[in-house]
Amino acid sequence: MSLEAHGLDWRAGGRLILDQVSLQVPPGELMGLLGPNGSGKSSLLRLFAGLVRPARGEVLLDGAPLARRSRRDVARRIALVEQHATTDTDISVLESVRLGRTPHRSAISGWSVNDQRAVDSALDQVGLADKSARRWHTLSGGERQRVQIARALAQQPSELLLDEPTNHLDIQHQLELLELVRRLPLTCVMAIHDLNLAAMFCDTLAVLDSGRLVAFGAPEEVLTPALIERVYGVRALVSRSTRHRRPHVQYLPLTPSSLDQEPPCEPST
């Protein structure tokens, strides 16, 4: 059953950030979480991770309230990769990924064979096994994101939450990272801004607007010109490739001009 939200309200600074959000994350799929800045995407991820509790409603994990589970138990099941990855400590890639084993170890337990296997597997999955000795401050933005994902994978979660993992990455690294996430045999929820990348890589999409869930479904069902204009305030054309049947969003100018003509459709591929 994986993760479910039932009637979630969340407030911060006296403002209602999430308003009666209910949805079920499809098990084993990559779900994209869309919406403008301030729509509540990061807040919903933190509620799913059990880092904060809702003002109203509840999060369920496998049908049971998340609030009744211990922090250690939740961390063994759910891993969150937050948006800004930084540290003042000059640690190595290996040392950073080893931190992912914390939920599985007690204060007096030694480093086990299972711990090492989990770390080695995580480094292999993100393609950093040969860079485990590198120092954090020598890594590129894309490499730092992969380290963060490796640390999450070392937790051996069944649910992985990612808060805008492609931010500040160039196009190549965005594609590489999303290909990596899509291959993971986990239930994933990913907040993402780019509608075309969301359409390319996500199995389902959930759209938040001013804290409310306004759309949920397959990319071709959700990404319509009417929804894009209503949620983002921009006009767009939505076409579909005959190769992969995924929608492609083409934005139109905001103000009338010589460019404000319906562009010719690109050939389907």
Rank of each mutant, 00 (worst) to 15 (best):
V189I: 07
M190R: 02
I192N: 00
I192A: 00
H193E: 01
H193M: 01
D194N: 10
L195E: 02
N196W: 04
N196P: 11
N196S: 14
L197G: 06
L197T: 07
A199S: 15
A199W: 04
M200S: 15
F201T: 10
F201Q: 11
C202Y: 11
C202I: 12
D203E: 08
D203V: 03
T204A: 14
L205D: 05
A206F: 04
A206H: 09
A206W: 04
V207K: 09
V207H: 10
L208E: 00
L208A: 00
R212C: 12
R212Q: 14
R212S: 13
L213R: 04
L213P: 06
V214I: 02
A215D: 05
A215I: 01
A215Y: 01
G217Y: 12
G217V: 12
P219F: 05
P219G: 09
P219I: 07
P219A: 09
P219Q: 10
E220R: 06
E220V: 03
E221Q: 15
E221N: 12
E221Y: 09
L223D: 00
L223G: 02
T224R: 03
T224N: 04
P225M: 03
P225N: 06
A226R: 12
E229P: 08
R230M: 05
V231L: 07
V231C: 08
Y232I: 04
Y232V: 03
G233Q: 03
G233D: 04
G233M: 01
V234Y: 10
V234F: 06
V234N: 09
R235L: 08
R235C: 11
R235G: 12
L237Y: 09
L237C: 11
S239C: 11
S239E: 14
S239P: 07
R240K: 12
R240C: 13
S241H: 03
S241C: 15
R243V: 15
R243Y: 13
H244G: 13
H244D: 15
H244R: 13
